[in-house]
Every structure is written in structure tokens, then in C-alpha cells.
Design a protein around this nucleic acid. Sequence first.
DNA 1: TCAATAGTGTCTGTTAGACATTATGGA
DNA 2: TCCATAATGTCTAACAGACACTATTGA
Lengths: 213, 213
Amino acid sequence: MRNSSLDLICFAATGRKLSVLVRRGSGRTRDALPWTNLDTRSPLSSQGTRLAKDTTGKNPGWIAQAGVFGDGLKHPSDGTLSIAFVTVVPRGTDAPEGYEWRQMNKLSVLGARQKAMVEAALDVVRDRMDREPVAFKMLPATFSLTDLQDIYELLLERFLHKASFRRSLLSASVVSSTKEWRSEGRGRPAQLYRYNPSKRRKSRRMVRFELLS
Amino acid sequence: MRNSSLDLICFAATGRKLSVLVRRGSGRTRDALPWTNLDTRSPLSSQGTRLAKDTTGKNPGWIAQAGVFGDGLKHPSDGTLSIAFVTVVPRGTDAPEGYEWRQMNKLSVLGARQKAMVEAALDVVRDRMDREPVAFKMLPATFSLTDLQDIYELLLERFLHKASFRRSLLSASVVSSTKEWRSEGRGRPAQLYRYNPSKRRKSRRMVRFELLS
DNA sequence: TCAATAGTGTCTGTTAGACATTATGGA
DNA sequence: TCCATAATGTCTAACAGACACTATTGA
């Protein structure tokens, strides 16, 4: 498939903001999402994974298609179509050489098509975070429940009720507690948890936390 | 973009089953979803809409991307990639010349890639039916609440509680009643409703029926 | 009249959200 | 000690699901 690109939207939590990995422009070239030319011959999904790995240096903990974009919007490749993949990396991951974390509200530097892709990618994340462990892949392997709630609040752009959040999470058996506690300056230390969903897919009722694999 | 196809998954309720529009094979050619070659030059979304219109004869009431497929799976076009669009038509729509409605559990005649596309398309419908009026576009403009519940049950593949379904629907102000009643053989006639969501996007709580426009 | 389907009213168990309180560290 | 944050207990309103009941037609 000539004339087409593969683009990556890589999200991470930075401080209290949600950020996207952006390649810095070099004087003449504009800032841009990481992208590559589409290779007609190799499987699409592995190309997405490879783009993520080549960019971030690690195999993606979670990755998904975010749609095909074109419709006349400008793209750095000058190709007519772009296939977008969306991935996440844990909080604290350093931006690779030539890249930087750019907050969601400071993406005006991107081209029109890539801006549309970021919006769509965030929608994909929001849609799937209650069925796939997306939020967990934005944290280290062990984390406090407050850490996790922060991620949810970042992605959903709204505040959640602390007690309810914990209750839902624990009663859905998606996390298991470790014996570690983490003290962070003042205040009582937080117990650390691990993503560890149990098999049961019960309930069918509440829609939140139907995380499984 | 050469070497690529645009495919359409068109769903409709037929009797008590969910069906997909399939082009009948002609001796040498296999049964297949409607598809066309991708045109590099025109906007993607309008190509999807046009494929739907050319196939069904009408502008789609709802249409969405369902993903890009390839990964070595066989496709009638012999192209390496296929962009899938998913649409729905009202119950009772006749299959156009050369096509027929094929029940979901009788799709073994399709090629591997197109089978994967149908699965993905149904997932897309399920994901969006609580935010977009997908189910309503599978019915005529006026319908009984039982009609609507039947569609939901078909798409979700599970039975819903009648009283709860009605309560949620009415309290969410998604439908408005008409003055028409429809008598269908025995039993009390059903009042007909119309899709007519009101503006308020309140609640944030329950996830069902956040239909808006 | 019976059968079949539409539509309602009431009860109950579950749970989200609010609020208050305790627990446990650092400053 | 005070402060900040974690964690928990209790109450209440909302609501899903169950069930039973009424309503209205055709056979």
C-alpha cells in the first residue's frame, strides 16, 4: 500500500496531565507524531507493534488500532491515508532521543490529520479502559490505588469518588494487594497493589471494571 | 492506495436473527461481503458512505469504521489490506439484486478476512449502541418499545428485563411517544415511539442510554 | 371466554455517592 | 503537636431486577 503512513499515538501520564509523545521538529520540519511508511507486505498488527517498539524502545503493554485517517487533512508524509495505532507507556517513562512528552492541550503544533488522530485515539482508550487493562499499563507493575485513580481521572477528565472507586475495584477482583507500602512525604503510606484479575466474568450489570485478561 | 479494498458490513434484523448482507457467489466466485477497490484520491469517509449507498440504494442512517484488516488473511480482492466500514439498515429492508441476508451463524462461506471483519464490526456496534442511535437505525422511524428491545437483545445476545428497559429508556428521554398504536394479531396493541433524544447530558452515572444526537 | 401481548405498580437487593471517622506516617 | 494522606464505616438515594397485576386486543 503505497502513499500511506502508519502513525503512533503514545499516551503517558506526566504529572497531573495526560501527554502524547511527539517528535520535535527541526527548523524546517514540523513537530509530528511518530510515524513510518506503511509496508504493504508485512502484517499490519506487527507493523503497529514494531512502530511502537522502535519508538519507545519497548514492546507495547497495550496497543490498538485507532482508525484510518485522510479526508484531505494534511500529513507530514504527504500520503493520502494514515493508519493510526494507539499505545500507552508507564508513568515516568523517559521520552526517547528527539522526542518529548507534550500535554494534550498543547498539541496545536501538530498537523490537522495528526491532531484528529490524537482525539480519536483518546476516544479509543476511554472506550476500552473498562474492558482492557489500559490504565494499568500506564503505571509500574505495583502501584497504589490512588495512583490508579489518578490515571482514570486523567483519561476520563473527571473526578471519581474515592471510596466508590476502591469498592468497585476490589469487589471486581481486578487487583491484589502486595505486602509493600509506599511512603510519599507526609501522610499515611499507601499499600501497593498489582493488576491481577480473577477469572469470573459475572455481573453483566455494572459496566465498569469488566477487565478480564 | 493500490492493492487495498473497502469492505462493508451491513447489519439488519431478520426475524429473530441478526443478519449480514452478503453477495452471492457465482459458481467460481465465493460468497463475499460487498467491497470495492480503495480509491486513493477521494476522501475515505465519503468512500465508505458511497459504498453503503451503492450497495443498499440509500444513504446510511449510521456508518462507522470497523478497522483495517490484513495480516495474511485471504480476501477476494487479493489485496493485502482492507478497510472495513459497518452500517445498519432498518428491519424489513430487501436485499438488493445479487445479495442476500445471511444469518450471523451461517457465515462460514465467507473468506477468513471478511469473517474477522464481521466479528469486529459487531463489536463496534455493541460498543457504540449506548452512545449512538445505532439500534434505532435498525427500525423504521416509528416503532414499539418491544421492537426496540428485540434489536437490543439481538445485538447484545442476551435477554433484557422488559420493565427495566422501558424505565431506563423513558427516564433517559431518548424516545417520545406518538399517537399511533399498532395491532399485531392477538394481544393489546403497542404504542409507537419515535427516536427523539432531548439535549440534557446529565447523570454520568449509569452508562446505558447516553444517546445524544 | 381464552390466549397473547402491552404496559404498570410495588418490593427488594445492590450500589454509587456523600460524609464522617479512624489510621499512620512526616514535619 | 499538627498536617496530610490512606483507608474504612455508615447512611441514603437511585436503580436494576423480580414479580404480579391490569389493559386491550383477536380468536
